[in-house]
Computed example of a mutant assay.
Amino acid sequence: MTSWVARLSCNRREAEAAIALDEPFPGIAPPPILTATEGDGGWLLELHTGTRPSPALLAMLSALAPSAPDPPSVEEIPEADWVVQSQAGQAPVDAGRFHVFPGHRAGEARPGQIALRIEASLAFGTGQHATTAGCLLILDRLARQRRLGRVLDLGTGSGVLAIAAARADRSARVIATDIDPVAIRVARRHAGRNHADGISFGVGAGLGATPIRRAAPFDLVLANILARPLIELAEGLSWTVRPGGLLLLAGLLRGQERAIRAAFGARGFRLVQRLQGDWPILLLARRGRGKPPSRAAAIRAARRGKAAAWRSAGTI
């Protein structure tokens, strides 16, 4: 079997705007995967599909980058090779105590580091992107300071954040969910390879997944997704995080931070820590130490947030 990739030149602003879209290709099913990379020749949008992209889909791609001097190029490639090739040869990533590496770079962790083997696959999240690395850095700081308690990794992708939480605090109860069953299969495999067998995985959209409803509220929620789904999930997350609990948000661009902070500030969250950069990482705490909401209230909030479902390929 083969898959297809369409490539289109763009500038940085167009790349950032394109990958920030919740649904860059409305009406296309199954939704294609869109990535943006920067190389020696400038920025590039890449569209990955299981079948040859239609003229309508290519027109949608072209509309995302008006500055492109040429139409998209289309290439047929072996299935999933684009993922492997994009990660082949990449150096391990160090973030706090965490050392994230592909299998061919095993044995390079320093004494005292927590080595996490995350392979190239059909699920995103290898630690290479600033959002994942930033989340790992803050997660390491938290694990040094306190017990993590009950943890939710929302939109887990490769499972790297859930695995990191489980490895950094063996007493933590970690739940990881994703709308994409392929991502969950990959994450389970990674958990086994990294001796993090205690993680509970589940498939589900937004906050509507059964494992979330059963285990809420959480002491720590990790949400490395995109700005628009985060805003749409703000109300549901206000019930999913226990009073006094923490919420780690990532996947937003610098220009989207004000809207994110306003949405969560209005629902009882305050900023605890921020990592600066083009992709800021926000650690928020839910105000109050009162009685957690009833299960019925939490389920109602989860259903209202269910419309904010996303593909794990939208995670970074």
Rank of each mutant, 00 (worst) to 15 (best):
A298H: 07
G202I: 03
T240R: 01
A285I: 15
I184H: 04
V160G: 06
S158H: 06
G159C: 09
V74P: 00
A250S: 15
I33Y: 00
H48M: 02
R303P: 02
A91K: 11
P30C: 12
L142C: 11
D180T: 10
R97F: 13
R261H: 08
T51G: 07
V174C: 08
R214N: 03
S73V: 03
R185W: 06
R141T: 09
A143V: 13
I184Y: 11
I212Y: 00
P32T: 04
L233N: 00
A162P: 07
L148S: 02
A308K: 02
G50Q: 04
V241Q: 03
A123Y: 02
Q87W: 09
P55V: 08
R214Q: 05
R228Q: 11
S238C: 11
G202V: 03
L252N: 08
D70A: 14
P243D: 05
L122H: 04
A130E: 09
L148Q: 01
R270H: 11
R295S: 12
R173Q: 02
A205V: 14
R274K: 13
A29F: 15
A88D: 12
P102T: 13
T37V: 15
A68S: 13
S9H: 10
I212L: 05
L252P: 09
A209E: 00
Q273L: 15
A115S: 13
I299G: 01
A143E: 06
L226F: 07
A234Q: 02
A263F: 14
A88H: 14
Q113D: 01
S86F: 02
A187L: 10
L142V: 14
R213I: 06
E16Y: 12
R7T: 06
F98I: 12
S238V: 13
D81G: 00
V241T: 03
R242G: 03
S171C: 09
G251K: 00
A115E: 07
